[in-house]
Design a binder for these strands. Structure first.
Length: 428
RNA sequence: GGUGAGAUGGCUGAGUGGUCGAAAGCAGCGGUUUGCUAAACCGCCGUACGGUGUAAAGCUGUACCGAGGGUUCGAAUCCCUCUCUCACCGCCA
């Protein structure tokens, strides 16, 4: 949510920056400003009346204690009271409209974000490693895991439905190994505190991080409740301190959390996505940081490096891109994507999105911190990044480490997590 | 699922219709004093949204005693609904 004061004071700058990511933003800003003006006019009016009411009520108390008659005052005050009730209703209607509008306006892009319209306009920041070459035809992960018995899509479909994966044997262990490897790296190596949050969250939390109200169709909603399956650990973890005022010396906060992620992918069904590339439930290790505004940019770069470290240790080729204004997520000011090379797909797959929401989410969830210099409270910046997403990582790993005979070599860093196993072969 | 008790400022905790944004204590901040440490004393010490102010400061209004509604000239206090916490019972990984 954008700061209404900032909009009021810099309407043109806000409009032109928003226009780079979303056409029609000017109109919405104009609407917000009109409501804001109306709201402030009404506030002045009603608060003047309330001031009168409070003053007279005090007098009544004094008069009564002296035993004097106060009936004549009540006639006038009843009138004032009715006016207040009426005006209060108008105020809350206007405030509700304004809040609703604000919740639907995306974040302002960071000054360093390139202007562009689609994913094709996202510049590459860097590459790491290089594409593996094979002296045999590279298989894709579906073929490999079928041969090795790592995945069973048919039975997942039978017990649940299309778009779900079932890991078995060494496949299940590999998934678990990757999760543990990443959690250990980020906690021990990068200083994050591990959180194991609920996998169900309420509407308030989803509003705080920006999934609601606009993107309800991508969530699994639990019928008859105000609760949803988590689409990402970002939701429970970033909201951990919602409605709190932290002390400045509590910052920066670094959390890492593993959760499964549930996405209904409405409208995406049937797109050519055999295998693990696009499923309704996948695992992810997520990094969250809550920092002072002045530390946000540095924290963002560092977080990106933490995510990259995972892939470097696994020896997987990837590239980093920065999302242009038109391709960024709704609530984010700046986002880097990390894309893994998947030889069997002949394509780069997004496995991490590292974003700085700046104060956009903190404002939505009423998270503040008390500044040490005594200059009041401020909204901290909240950052989130996948560190990294499974499923696609699983895909790239199998396809990168495949051998001519269809077996898959286990990267050395994972060996201890695989009980010393060096290679995935049929029947393991 | 059932019954009961609760929800007040960073914390503890008073307050059952009227000068209550709210006693008191603790913690915190500033200061005075005492040759250290400690103590004593004095002052300050919630948040949000408005108005005013060139800005900072300041001044000023309103709202907030779990949330939302209601009664009343006036609600932390009375009524209703909901949420959460605690205890016990039932069920249960």
């Amino acid at each position: 949510m954008l700061d209404i004061k900032h909009i009021r004071e810099n309407p043109d700058a806000v409009k032109s920056r928003l226009a780079t990511r979303h056409q029609g933003a000017e109109v919405r800003i104009e609407e917000v400003l009109l409501l804001d003006e109306r709201r402030r006019r009404l506030l002045v009016e009603v608060e003047t009346l309330k001031a009168e009411k409070n003053r007279v009520s005090k007098e009544v108390g004094i008069l009564k204690s002296k035993g004097q008659s106060v009936d004549h005052i009540f006639v006038r005050m009843k009138e004032v009271s009715d006016q207040i009730t009426d005006l209060d209703k108008q105020v809350s209607l206007v405030e509700e409209d304004q809040r609703h509008l604000l919740l639907g306006i995306p974040n302002i892009p960071h000054a360093s974000v390139p202007t562009g319209r689609t994913a094709a306009d996202n510049p590459e920041v860097r590459q790491w490693g290089r594409k593996p070459s094979f002296d045999f035809p590279a298989r894709n992960h579906v073929e490999l895991s079928e041969q090795l018995g790592l995945l069973d899509f048919d039975r997942a479909t039978k017990i649940t439905g299309a778009g779900f994966a079932l890991y078995r044997g060494a496949g299940a262990r590999l998934e678990r190994a990757l999760i543990n490897f990443m959690l250990d790296l980020h906690t021990t190596g990068h200083g994050y505190t591990e959180i194991n949050p609920p996998y169900i969250v309420n509407a308030q939390a989803l509003t705080g991080t920006g999934q609601l109200p606009k993107f309800a169709d991508q969530l699994f909603h639990l019928e008859g409740t105000e609760q949803y399956l988590v689409p990402t650990a970002e939701v429970p973890v970033a909201n951990l301190h919602s409605n709190e005022i932290l002390r400045e010396d509590q910052l920066p906060i670094r959390y890492v959390a593993y959760t499964p992620c549930f996405r209904s992918e409405a409208g995406a069904a049937g797109v050519g996505t055999r295998g693990l590339l696009r499923i309704h439930q996948f695992d992810k290790v997520e990094l969250i940081r809550i920092v002072r505004p002045e530390d946000g940019d540095a924290a963002h770069e560092e977080m990106l490096q933490h995510a990259e470290k995972v892939l470097q240790l696994l020896g997987l080729h990837y590239r980093v891109i920065v999302l242009c204004t038109g391709d960024m997520g709704f609530g984010m000011a700046k986002t880097y994507d990390i894309e893994l090379w998947a030889p069997g797909q002949g394509a780069y797959l997004e496995v991490s999105s590292v974003s700085n929401a700046e104060d956009y989410q903190a404002r939505r969830m009423a998270l503040r911190y008390r500044r040490n210099d005594g200059k009041g409270n401020a909204h901290p910046h909240i950052l989130n990044g996948s560190g990294v997403a499974l499923a696609r990582l699983f895909v790239a790993l199998l396809e990168t480490y495949q051998q001519a005979d269809g077996s898959v070599v286990v990267p050395p860093v994972l060996k201890p997590y695989m009980g010393g196993l060096e290679s995935l072969v049929p029947g393991v």
